[in-house]
């Protein structure tokens, strides 16, 4: 049987799937990146390896912020940006989707589609307010596990208004509101609402959001945020049970399109893969170079802007 691997290396979590040729998930894995994509992917691949013996891997795709490095490490046949990957993945399950809202750990994006074609997209540019990282840090401050955030938010009837323009201001506003004596559940609900407002004002600015709307990324698992999206947009929001894996599924599907006779292997445990950061002193630009070594052999350099640094 043929299968394809898709890996989405995000800032917070690393997602991986193995799909068959019809796009059904054979195996999935979701782990924390913890700032070390190489280690995380090795662990992820170890989880993904537990598949039936007769499966032949015909393609590997990578996406997310670590796509280039991990693509090189695994010898992937497809390295795609996360916007395209998410769109392709979502289109596979929802053929008539018009809007994809995606809120991840450190970035958020909106993709508008028409007849299965991407028409417009936007990504957050300046700030992490309105992303998962903001929610996680506030959850820590309130000492509430992030997994329970959504359920608590739904209990509130009176979400607190929180200044959501900027993470730092939101935080000081939150401390102020807590000090004044608002309920924790109202504050949590306010946080969820502020994420939605921030997202719509920044990323969704000037975009016509039409249904069907699919919401994905890690934050889509938060019921509170989904609730406030529905309330504010006045549309039904679809959250797939695999919403956190959509990017990985998308890139696996893309790798299927580029399938050749080559068969890939997931035995990477014994391969030593190392990166070394150096500052190039070729000119006064001082590019930060990342040199990549596979089994102690230099295979590629990232970050150089001219021919001097490539060596």
């Amino acid at each position: 049987m043929k299968a394809y691997v898709g890996i989405d290396i995000g800032s917070i979590s690393t997602k991986g799937v193995v799909i068959d040729q019809f796009g059904n998930i054979i195996k999935e894995s979701y782990i924390w990146t913890e700032g070390n994509p190489i280690k995380a992917v090795k662990k992820l691949i170890n989880n993904l390896k537990e598949i039936p013996k007769d499966i032949e891997i015909k393609g590997i795709g990578t996406t997310g912020s670590g796509r280039k490095l991990i693509g090189l490490m695994l010898g992937a046949n497809t390295i795609k940006n996360e916007i395209t990957a998410h769109a392709v993945g979502t289109l596979h399950f929802y053929k008539d989707v018009r809007t994809i809202l995606e809120i991840g750990g450190q970035d958020s994006k909106i993709i508008l589609l028409e007849n299965g074609i991407i028409k417009d997209y936007a990504m957050n540019t300046l700030c992490a307010a309105g992303t998962g990282a903001f929610l996680t840090s506030q959850a820590k401050r309130l000492e509430v596990p992030i997994e329970e955030f959504g359920d608590i938010a739904l209990k509130s009837n009176n979400p607190v208004k929180i200044a959501s323009r900027c993470t730092v201001f939101a935080e000081s506003d939150l401390i102020h509101k807590a000090g004044v004596g608002y309920n924790t559940k109202d504050i949590i609900a306010g946080l969820c609402k502020s994420i939605v407002l921030n997202y719509l004002n920044n990323v969704g600015k000037g975009k016509k959001i039409k249904g069907p709307i699919v919401f994905q990324g890690g934050v889509s698992k938060n019921k509170g945020v989904v609730h406030y999206f529905e309330e504010i947009l006045n549309e039904k929001i679809i959250v797939d049970k695999n919403s956190h894996l959509m990017g990985a599924i998308g890139v696996a599907l893309l790798s299927k399109e580029r399938e050749t006779d080559k068969v890939y292997t997931l035995d990477i445990e014994n391969i030593s893969f190392e990166t070394r950061g150096v500052e190039c002193n070729g000119c006064s630009n001082h590019c930060d170079l990342v040199k990549i070594y596979k089994n102690n052999k230099h295979i590629d350099t990232f970050g150089n802007k001219c021919e001097v640094g490539g060596k």
């Binding site: 795609k80 940006n81 996360e82 916007i83 395209t84 991407i118 028409k119 997209y121 990504m123």
Partner: peptide
């Protein structure tokens, strides 16, 4: 680069 790549794909 990510935005440019996505633009090209679009």
């Amino acid at each position: 680069k990510t935005r440019l790549e996505a633009f090209f794909d679009m």
